[in-house]
Simulated scan of single mutants.
Amino acid sequence: MNIKTLCAIALTTVSATTFAGEMPDFQTVDINADGAISLEEAKSVEGLEAAFVTADIDKDGQLNEAEYEEVSRG
């Protein structure tokens, strides 16, 4: 693992712990059912917008189900 990946994981963990209580399931947040959560969709979950950048591990501008599940676990 490189330093950027480790930093991203650390920041995601810190950010996630601030809101990972009752997170809705991925399909609920993925409003348009395209298999990814956009920043706009993330705004529907309290705290997810703030953690979005660090939760987006592959930096593609959206959260896939694995990234969402990781941040949901806190």
Rank of each mutant, 00 (worst) to 15 (best):
F52M: 03
L6V: 13
A66D: 15
V29M: 02
G61L: 05
G47C: 08
E70Q: 12
E22W: 00
T28I: 04
E69K: 14
L39C: 00
R73M: 13
E70R: 09
F52Q: 03
G21F: 10
A16I: 00
D60M: 11
S38L: 06
E70G: 04
I3Q: 15
A36R: 12
A33G: 11
A51G: 04
S38Y: 08
I31C: 01
T5H: 11
E67V: 02
Y68H: 01
D60A: 11
E22V: 02
D30M: 10
S15H: 08
T54V: 15
D58W: 07
E70T: 14
A10G: 08
I37N: 00
A51K: 05
I3V: 13
G35A: 12
G21M: 04
E67Q: 09
I31F: 04
K43M: 03
R73S: 12
K4T: 08
D58K: 10
G21W: 04
T12K: 06
Q27V: 12
G47H: 05
E69G: 04
K43D: 05
I9F: 13
D56N: 14
L63R: 03
S44V: 07
S44N: 12
I9Q: 13
V45D: 03
S15Q: 07
L48M: 06
I3T: 14
D25K: 13
M1P: 09
I3Y: 10
T28D: 07
T54R: 01
L39T: 02
D58M: 05
F52C: 04
P24F: 03
T5A: 14
D60E: 15
I31R: 09
A51C: 07
E40R: 03
E69T: 13
T17Q: 08
A16M: 11
A50M: 06
A8E: 08
K59G: 10
S72Q: 03
R73N: 13
L63M: 07
F19L: 00
E65N: 12
E22S: 09
A50T: 02
N32K: 15
G74A: 10
A36I: 07
L39F: 06
G35L: 09
D30K: 07
G47S: 04
E22F: 00
R73H: 09
A51L: 06
P24D: 05
E67R: 01
L11T: 02
N32E: 15
S38A: 05
N2P: 11
T12I: 01
A55I: 12
V53P: 02
G61E: 03
A55M: 10
F19R: 01
K59L: 12
T13Y: 10
E40N: 03
E46G: 04
N2C: 15
F26M: 12
G74T: 09
E40K: 06
A36N: 10
S38Q: 05
E49R: 08
L63G: 05
T17S: 11
I3L: 14
V71E: 00
T12N: 08
I37S: 02
N32A: 13
T5Y: 10
T5P: 00
I31V: 15
L6A: 14
A36C: 04
F19N: 00
N2L: 12
